[in-house]
Structures are given as structure tokens and as C-alpha cells.
């Protein structure tokens, strides 16, 4: 279960719509919740909006079809989260004119235990928002529910 308030969701959508028709992305910081020793969910406290580093690295090809969050941006978000007693709990990106489901490349370059929110944007409008978690064995993503509060 991923808890994401409507105001944060609006901010996320605005950032991703601003990137359309290219992919856009960002980092979610917040807290994990536990039921005993088992992680039961995550609460998003804030978003770190980053630019798609793929644009910088590859100007000629695939701008619409790829996103990259650089290690510098992840390190910066990690420092910001730590200062606030929070952690990086996930990442988000858009799928312009494609469903909000993880692709094979998403799986190859993903990390376990954090949430991957994918927002489908079609013709400049958000049509779907879903959250996914990579399995421990990296074989697939499982969808997790998103709740507003």
C-alpha cells in the first residue's frame, strides 16, 4: 500500500505533464510502515522533481521512450531525506501514450523494496496512475494499491 495525498499526486501529475510528450520522472521520499517486522506500506511525504537525465546523455535517440534518474539526483534526494528523518521510498515516471504498466526496461533497471509509480499520459492528459514493486528475485513487478490518506 502506497499512501499519496491528492496534493502530492497533483504535483506529480503536473511535473509529468510538463514533460509530455517526453518521459519525465522524480523521486518520492517518506516513511515505511511496519506490521511487526514486515513492511506493510509506505507513506509519501514529499517529491523531489528531477530532470530526465536521459535527455542530456542521448540527444539523438529515444527521448520519448526512456527516462534516467542520475546518481547525483538520487544522492541529493537521499541527503535531503536523511536531514528530514525520511528515506527514499520510491520513484515515479510517465509513460507517454502507453499504459501505466512496467516495461522490460523498467524491470531491468529497477530496485527492490521501493515503489515505482507509473503515470500514463495520453494526448496531454493523465489517464492512469499505478504503483509497482519489483520482486526480490527481479522476475516481475507486483502492483500495490495507492491510497489517498
Amino acid at each position: 500500500m502506497l499512501t499519496l495525498t491528492s496534493s502530492l499526486l497533483v504535483r506529480m501529475h503536473q511535473h509529468l505533464l510538463g514533460g509530455y510528450p517526453r518521459e519525465a520522472c522524480g523521486i518520492m521520499i517518506g516513511q515505511e510502515t511496519y506490521d511487526g517486522a514486515q513492511q506493510s506500506g509506505k507513506i509519501v511525504h514529499d517529491l523531489v522533481l528531477v530532470s530526465n537525465a536521459w535527455e542530456v546523455e542521448s540527444e539523438r535517440e529515444g527521448l520519448r521512450n526512456r527516462y534516467l534518474i542520475s546518481p547525483e539526483d538520487v544522492a541529493r534526494a537521499d541527503r535531503e531525506a536523511s536531514q528530514r528523518g525520511l528515506d527514499i521510498i520510491g520513484f515515479f515516471h510517465s509513460h507517454p501514450d502507453h499504459p501505466a504498466r512496467p516495461s522490460e526496461t523498467d524491470r531491468e533497471f529497477a530496485w527492490p523494496n521501493v515503489s515505482f509509480v507509473i503515470v500514463s499520459v495520453e494526448a496531454g492528459q493523465v489517464v492512469d496512475t499505478r504503483s509497482w514493486v519489483l520482486r526480490d528475485d527481479r522476475s516481475a513487478f507486483d502492483e500495490e494499491p495507492i491510497t489517498g490518506s
Binding site: 518521459e23 521512450n65 527516462y67 515505482f116
Partner: peptide, 13 residues
């Protein structure tokens, strides 16, 4: 030594 993730992906080609 720090391990810092970067994240990538994208829609199917």
C-alpha cells in the same frame, strides 16, 4: 564507499 542507485526505464520500444 557508497552504493548509489540510478534508475532508468521507459515504455516498450
Amino acid at each position: 564507499l557508497s552504493i548509489v542507485p540510478s534508475v532508468a526505464g521507459g515504455v516498450p520500444q
